[in-house]
């Protein structure tokens, strides 16, 4: 039964009203994304856009999206945006923010991008306490180039460049980015969340909101690491991929708050 029919039939007694409870955020562009079906890049985009809407930041936001599956992210957000070279988004964001201190600048980086080729840029951006927000998509793989090993690949995980599973004796161990960056005084906020189910998605959104609030309050560098899926290169259905993320990534990458400066804690209590 449609809502209208429902209203009509019970008009006399209740007059229920239909309320909009969820709509596509305005900070997303109308373009369809090129992401594979069920890829959580899309969820992360949506959450960022929802937060930008809620905080009223669409007119102030500048996105910097480097190479990776999300290189075209500037087509998917309805905010000013730049594409960056592989790993260099935090440096570019630094340049943007320093000359536009009133803008809200955020990068959207994959794990190959941030943890491998761009590790120096992200660390020094945090060292400087740069007032930018980093959304870090950890899907334990190089998605765009077809599924090679990333610094975040789980031990034993099969990728096209670790065909027998990641061998830690040869290639070392996964990088714990949220923990690593939490050790720097310039970091105001460093947390890890997951996108594998709705409960965790809601928590992820709250973290993204806090990260942007940290920037608005000029508290320093903020980063949200999001455990994400790459169904295509993991070779799974989207639903199986989320299960895999829950069962294999969370034990390797414990969810939690690794650094939350006091100013943000107070804010949370007051809410």
């Amino acid at each position: 039964m449609t809502a209208l029919a429902f209203q009509r039939s019970e008009k006399k007694i209740l007059k229920p009203i239909e309320k909009l409870v969820y709509e596509r955020p305005h900070s997303l562009d109308e373009n369809h994304t090129h992401y594979c079906p069920g890829c959580t890049h899309g969820i992360a985009h949506r959450l960022i856009a929802e937060v930008l809407d809620e905080l009223g930041l669409q007119e102030k936001a500048i996105l910097v999206a480097p190479v990776g599956c999300a290189v075209l992210a500037y087509n998917y957000f309805d905010v000013d945006g730049a594409e960056a070279a592989h790993g260099r988004a935090p440096a570019m964001a630094t340049g943007l923010k320093r000359v536009n201190p009133d803008s809200v600048v955020f990068t959207y980086q994959g794990d190959g991008d941030l943890a491998s080729i761009g590790i120096a840029e992200v660390i020094h951006t945090a060292v400087r306490g740069e007032n930018i927000t980093v959304i870090f998509i950890n899907n334990a793989i190089y998605g765009m180039t077809g599924g090679q090993m990333a610094p975040t690949t789980i031990p034993g995980q099969v990728t096209t460049s670790s065909p027998n599973g990641r061998d830690t004796a040869q290639t070392g161990y996964p990088m714990q980015i949220a923990e690593l960056l939490s050790g720097l005084p310039g970091t105001a906020y460093s947390v890890r969340r997951s996108l594998h189910d709705t409960r965790h998605i809601i928590q992820a959104k709250k973290a993204i909101r806090t990260a942007f609030e940290a920037q608005l309050q000029e508290l320093g560098f903020s980063i949200v690491e999001l455990l994400s899926s790459c169904p295509t290169n993991w070779g799974m259905t989207p639903i199986k991929a989320l299960d895999w993320a829950r069962d294999n990534m969370i034990p390797q990458y414990p969810l939690g708050d690794y650094k939350v400066v006091d100013e943000l804690k107070k804010k949370r209590r007051n809410r």
Partner: peptide
């Protein structure tokens, strides 16, 4: 939904 395809109404 990763593609923000769904609008939701509640009575």
């Amino acid at each position: 939904c990763p593609d923000a395809c769904i609008t939701v109404y509640r009575q």
